Simulated assay, not measured.
Amino acid sequence: MKLYGVTGWKNAGKTGLVERLVAEFTARGLTVSTVKHAHQSFDVDRPGADSDRHRAAGAHEVLLASSNRVALLTELRGAPEPPLAELLTRLAPADLVLIEGYKRDAHPKIEAHRAAAGNPLIAPDDPTIRAVASDAPLALERPVFDLDDTNAIADFIAAELGL
């Protein structure tokens, strides 16, 4: 599987960019999966649902399956968060995996940046960031794209990965 990340600080436009890239790459005929890192506790289950009751009873993993989707919920119960490399082994084969977050991992990335958020760029100190997508002009020694130019960003990622 080919991997490419979208990183940046909170409110930089990462999720919107990943969403648009998924749509663009699938329109190009590629199979795309995503991995998103969440910094806080999150839940994808409805309180009181049968699967929630299974987890609350102590199940380590709960697999939900229907004719529309399959979801595997794993409770860490104090165990350390699995590293990205381990999580990737759980994915079915795909042409491209887009990874949102995981700033410190070594895969190639594009940084999403919104000037109004007031955060410093990560790119100048991180060689894994190959380009920046911003809503403001930037003078950098790597490619800078308009944050909304999904086609150009997708072309850049495709070229980087040989897709």
Rank of each mutant, 00 (worst) to 15 (best):
L73F: 15
H113W: 08
T128I: 11
G101M: 01
R55M: 03
P143Q: 14
K10Y: 09
Y4Q: 04
L91Q: 07
A136I: 11
K103L: 10
V35T: 04
A57S: 13
G16C: 11
F156E: 02
N119S: 13
F42N: 02
D149G: 12
H107F: 15
T26V: 03
P124D: 02
A56G: 06
L84H: 07
A59K: 02
R20C: 03
H60E: 06
V144F: 10
A49D: 07
H60A: 05
A115H: 15
L63R: 00
P120L: 10
E19P: 07
A158F: 14
A94Y: 09
L98Q: 00
N151W: 08
A49F: 03
K36F: 08
D95A: 15
E111G: 00
K10F: 13
G78V: 05
L30W: 04
P82A: 02
T150C: 15
I110M: 05
V132M: 03
K10C: 12
L138C: 13
D105R: 08
H37C: 04
L121H: 05
S33V: 01
Y102S: 02
L84T: 00
F25C: 01
A71F: 02
V44K: 09
L88H: 07
Y4R: 04
H60L: 05
I129N: 01
R77P: 02
V97G: 03
L63E: 06
L72V: 14
R20H: 14
I129W: 01
A12K: 08
A123K: 04
V35I: 12
G162L: 13
P82C: 08
I153F: 10
L84V: 05
E141C: 12
A94P: 00
L3H: 06
H39Y: 10
G16Q: 07
L3D: 01
P120H: 11
E100G: 02
V70H: 07
G101K: 01
P82V: 06
R53I: 03
D105L: 03
E81Q: 10
A85F: 06
D155S: 15
G5A: 08
I129T: 04
A94Q: 12
V132I: 11
G78Q: 09
A115N: 14
P108W: 01
A92E: 15
A133Q: 09
R46S: 11
I99A: 07
V18M: 09
A152L: 12
S51V: 05
L73P: 03
D95K: 09
H54K: 00
G5H: 08
E24P: 05
I110D: 06
L84Y: 00
E24C: 05
I153L: 11
P47T: 03
A12C: 14
Y4L: 10
L98T: 06
T150S: 14
R77D: 13
